[in-house]
Design a protein around this nucleic acid. Sequence first.
DNA 1: AATGAATGAGCGTTCATTCAT
DNA 2: AATGAATGAACGCTCATTCAT
Lengths: 208, 208, 208, 208
Amino acid sequence: MTQLEAQDPARLGKREKTKAANQQAILDAARKVFAELGYGATTVRDIIRGTGLASGTFYNYFKSKEEVFQALMDESALRVRPALIQERLKATTFEEFLRGMFLVFFSYVVDDNRAYTMMRANSGQIRVRMDTPEVIAGFDELRVDIDDGIERGVVPNVDPEYLTAALIGIAFEMADRMVQRDDPDPIAAADFATALVVGGIDLVPHKK
Amino acid sequence: MTQLEAQDPARLGKREKTKAANQQAILDAARKVFAELGYGATTVRDIIRGTGLASGTFYNYFKSKEEVFQALMDESALRVRPALIQERLKATTFEEFLRGMFLVFFSYVVDDNRAYTMMRANSGQIRVRMDTPEVIAGFDELRVDIDDGIERGVVPNVDPEYLTAALIGIAFEMADRMVQRDDPDPIAAADFATALVVGGIDLVPHKK
Amino acid sequence: MTQLEAQDPARLGKREKTKAANQQAILDAARKVFAELGYGATTVRDIIRGTGLASGTFYNYFKSKEEVFQALMDESALRVRPALIQERLKATTFEEFLRGMFLVFFSYVVDDNRAYTMMRANSGQIRVRMDTPEVIAGFDELRVDIDDGIERGVVPNVDPEYLTAALIGIAFEMADRMVQRDDPDPIAAADFATALVVGGIDLVPHKK
Amino acid sequence: MTQLEAQDPARLGKREKTKAANQQAILDAARKVFAELGYGATTVRDIIRGTGLASGTFYNYFKSKEEVFQALMDESALRVRPALIQERLKATTFEEFLRGMFLVFFSYVVDDNRAYTMMRANSGQIRVRMDTPEVIAGFDELRVDIDDGIERGVVPNVDPEYLTAALIGIAFEMADRMVQRDDPDPIAAADFATALVVGGIDLVPHKK
DNA sequence: AATGAATGAGCGTTCATTCAT
DNA sequence: AATGAATGAACGCTCATTCAT
């Protein structure tokens, strides 16, 4: 039943339709208020207030505030990670590897900058960035790829932890500025970041 | 403390001494528990418990939990900013400028990593990073210096906002990994970061 | 159930049959979970979960959680009361009267100790006993019978209220212990209780 | 300090005085509403509403609803238990033993019938009796004494568990009626209960 | 200035009940 | 009649802040 109806969303009963709509409404509202207030300051009531639903209804869809937050982060990470993996697989040079990765990330950020600002939400004057397990896992994969690349000689033999850190730092911080521009250009940003790292990597102290 | 002062009440105005000591005691206790529990999970009672003072007394020194947090962050930034300014002033090349800046920052982070881990406190599975106004201001100054350097021809003519972002991203993210090492080496980290940027900057798209 | 009825939908009005079956299913499930969790801790969802019905359906049969509880207690009391009345009617001596009453009660408790433990459900460390109107009514009848017995000279002329109270106290408290024994013996319990009261009643202060 | 001041309650600082007064106010209010509504139906807000204090203040004195309930029951039990123990110790015959015990219990109930009605609170139509660990412990002591008495030949050799149950049942149920009389007479009640048991015990089946 | 009890808004969450389907 | 999602009042409890002492 579920399967049959899932094939054609238009044929869903009214009940199923509102259920799906409510689920999405909660996710959307949560994304918005988490972005505005940050995780800590956000209350469940803040979230449901943005949906017009009753407070109890929240708990028909998510077991807790943390669960909806996780769902949101996973939703985001799930969208980038496969693309990042693709890029890494098809890269044959370090430059391709970098450019692919930066481009995917910056493009995702532009497409979905609401989810992104959530990670960067500032409550009051304090800038906050939150990395959830899915996000951390994504970065761990990058680290593995870099280790692998060093072994295969594709990536210069530099401190892999620092390199990973530098890439992540560049990616997030630049993305932050990019999305605040009038006409964000992921390609230009990826070019910038790629060039910086590709050009610099050779001067970085290599392990003997 | 009470005992020591009781030995020589005449030495100096007890009031003033106690006031300064209490202020500092609160800051010290706050630094400690914010680092342990993170901002959100820390209660005012957690802070004053570490001082032996009464909860109400907290409010003689700080208007709110947020204010003591700000004071703490400012205190930290106040220690780095003058040093960062010094470095920028005495730099004659872009490389000197970068190395000086990274070294000051990484050294500060190692010296005072309690304050730093506070910015990185994680609650549950979620990593959180908090940048306060003073820190942000410190980096805004960096931006001004970069603009200035470009004008004077010392810094290559690249997108200054992206460059600033890249430097900040590299600095914070690398610092994060560095402090978790057994024997953190700010010089090595500064060398790595400096080489990366110095080497790469020429390949980065220049403005006409 | 659904399957059985599907085999012969014509046999009898499906409606009526289902209605009665559902009503009983709710009562059965309620008896079970009230016994397990106690009244306070039991939720309507706990009850209907044991029936396969939907939560809203509960309210087609009972107006509230309290109503189903009352129905349950009444159902129990309804089973004992007629038997108790029988015993009282056929008793010709005080001893017969007592033995009959205790035996009926202890037998009922053993047969239906689920309903009985419900009255004794404990939440945490706290033992709770609940007596509902029907049960109370049952014992009020006992009082009437005792008054009557005194008037007719069958029951010694002692304080009838205290006598009723003593009988009730003995009955409930002994039943409590009896059901926790490996092999509960209502006859032995009735003998014990009867002997205690029959033997003692003569020493009890009589009214002039 | 505490000791010195405890010697003269009149010399207590205002703070200590209100603290003690509030503690007592909460206990009093709790006793009252538990008696009215029963444990399950009573909310912390119901309790503090009866004191004029703020809801949070409750938690300065008791960690939870359960804790205040326990405190209340212990307070009661603590008052009877020592007296009951005294009576048992000084009894040389079974009759003395019984009379002493019943008299202490009935007297206590009359003196403090608010605490007692709590154990008998009815919520709606449902009579509830709650026995807390302290109360249960008190009954366990009775059981031990009975076992002991049987061994020493002071108490007839009947089923000790049933005998304990019967005594407890008689005590509680009779107390219940007694307190509702215009002029409760603990001595008369104790005479009644003692006579009933003393007279009956010989007819009760003895173990061979 | 220091104290710490009092305050009460607000939290995350539950659940008896209603009602659109 | 049956469904089960929606409702929202109420729960136990926390804690930043106030204020009488």
